[in-house]
Structure formats: C-alpha cells, structure tokens
Design a binder for these strands. Structure first.
Lengths: 156, 156
DNA sequence: GCTATGTTGACATGCTAGTTGTCATGTCCG
DNA sequence: CGGACATGACAACTAGCATGTCAACATAGC
C-alpha cells in the first residue's frame, strides 16, 4: 500500500467540505444578483473559452448537455447569454456572453478575487500550483474511470 | 491583484468537477452495497476519530446536525452504527461503528485505496501533500468566511 | 436549589443542482 | 443514400443538503 495513495485519500476527504463551503460563500456573493451559481459557471466558461456549443460546454464542465441546455436557456432569459449562428453546424448554435453577461461576470470575478487574495495570503504560491496540478490530474483520471464504470452520461 | 489569488481561483475551478466525478466513482463502488455515500462518511469519521456525538460529527464534517442525525439513524438501521451511553451527557449518546460497520468500511476503504494508488502513480508525492495543505487551509478560511456571511447553520 | 440560556433529538418541509429518459430533427460518413 | 451518431427540447425524478420548529434535557450563574 503506497503512501501516496493514502495521502491522496486525504485530498478527497477535503474535497466535499471545500466544495460545500465555497458554494455557500459564492452563493452569498450572488445573493443580490439574478444569476445562479451554475449559470454563472456557464457565463464564465464562454467568457474565458469563447463561444461554444451546448455540448462543448457540457463536456468542459462535466455536466450533462441537458443540464447545460437549461442553464443556457436561463442565461438567455436574463440577457447574459446569446446564441450566435454556428458556421459549422446549422442547428447547434454557438453560445456566447452578451455585453451584460461579460459585465456581470467581470464584476463578480473581481469581488471574488479580492476575497481570494486574502485567503491566498496564508498560502504558499508553490503549494497552490501543486494543488492545481493534482486536481487537474484527478479530473482527468476520474473522468476516465467514470467513463469505464458508468456507461451512461452518453459516454462522451 | 496578486498572482496567487488568481491561481487559487484555478483551484476552485477544479473543485466542482472533482467533487462531481469522485462522487460518481465512489457511488459506483458503493452500488452493490447498502450504504449510501453520506452514511459511509459518518462511519468513516467515527471509525477514525472514535465515538462522537451527533453534533460533534456534524461540525467535523461541515454538515448540519439534523443532516447527520438522519445519517446516523440510517446507519443504525443498517447495523453499522450504534449508540453508546455518553458519560458526559445523558441524552446525547456517543455514536460508534459496530463490528459490521468497521468491516464494511475496511473493505470499501481497501478497494478505494487500490484505485487511488493507480491514480497517485501519475502524481508527485510532494504535490499531493501541498494539495492537502492548501485544501485544509481553504476549509478553515471558508468556514470562517461562511460563518460571517451566513448567520445560520446554528452558528457553531 | 432554581431559573435563564443553550444544546440536543426528532420531525417536517423545501430547494438546488444535477441525472436519466425519450423523441424528433439534423449532421456526417461509408 | 442510408445508417450511425449528435443535438435540441421537454419531462420526470433523485440525492443531498439546508431550514424551521418544538419539546426535552443539560449547564452555568446566581
């Protein structure tokens, strides 16, 4: 039994609390806005990665395309997302952030970064980078594992 | 705008996918057993930390005590958890894992560690330790932040 | 001791994020 | 051009939580 396996287990033991707490904190910052947290995630993604189709967003965010579809609809109603014609595909439009969407995201992101700076102050920069490396690797490996174990999620 | 704040943001960007995927993978491993994932977490905690009262478990796991209460009830029905008299408190019993509970947990934990070893193989041991440090710090800081922002959760 | 204040168990309710299932339509490739 | 696959649209459904409330009990301060 390798030591790293056991140590990696400690990572997972922390994941749920961090997820839970960050959700609460982010939600508190979102309280007086009209965007929900998942919608926010979609806006963020098309903001950073550029216009994408619904299935592309779904794969990047590890959500089902049906789930993303609903979020996109919601974002469109709020005026933060818009569908643009997709030269590659007549039916599957490209989803992009509107001007308003970009503004909302920028404002939110700013608030959050200030808070994060305060938290980051107690941390080593190298540790943070290492943490990102580990998490990215986990997403990759778990994604593969999940695809094996559960033949659902339309397989990707 | 410090660089570390932005980098820390990357950590959070990965948290949700990891949480989601690990939940799915763990659930797959739990499929042919009678324990659910949250019940499993409670068993694990009393297994590792020793007999605890419901509110103590709740604080450690960052769940509401009402939530833990239900999980404990469920675990008791399955025969994996039991209530022992608490010398410090007549009404609030100590929750402990039964023999069966310890057995189930050990068996699960073993399976998982084997899988984790495979994943850990592609990772640097130092990075994993750094990751744990960062996450532990985040739990601590976010907990404080959450307590400030949302006066609920019975405050602790 | 006795009362104020907090803690715990027990139960009920509600919500959010996400999945699964299904079908019709559209796209790609042999 | 035909079959496999991707996409949009809609509809349940679920799990995992929080929230709210109350009575019973425990603890501390007087």
């Amino acid at each position: 039994m390798s030591e790293t396996g056991a140590e990696l287990y400690e990572v997972f033991r922390h994941i749920r609390p961090v997820h839970q707490l960050s959700a609460r904190v982010v939600a508190a910052g979102l309280a007086h806005r009209d965007v929900s947290m998942p919608v926010r995630a979609v806006i963020e993604h098309v903001h950073d990665a550029g216009p994408r189709t619904v299935p592309q967003i779904a794969r990047a965010l590890w959500i089902t395309r049906q789930g993303v579809q609903r979020l996109v609809d919601e974002g469109k109603e709020l005026g933060y997302l818009e569908a643009r014609p997709n030269p590659e595909h007549k039916r599957s439009h490209l989803i992009a952030a509107t001007e308003a969407g970009r503004a909302v995201y920028a404002s939110l992101h700013d608030e959050e970064l200030t808070r994060l700076d305060r938290i980051a102050a107690g941390l080593d920069a190298g540790d943070i980078n290492a943490c990102v490396r580990v998490l990215a690797h986990l997403v990759h490996e778990l994604g593969a594992l999940d695809a094996l174990l559960t033949p659902t999620m339309e397989d990707q």
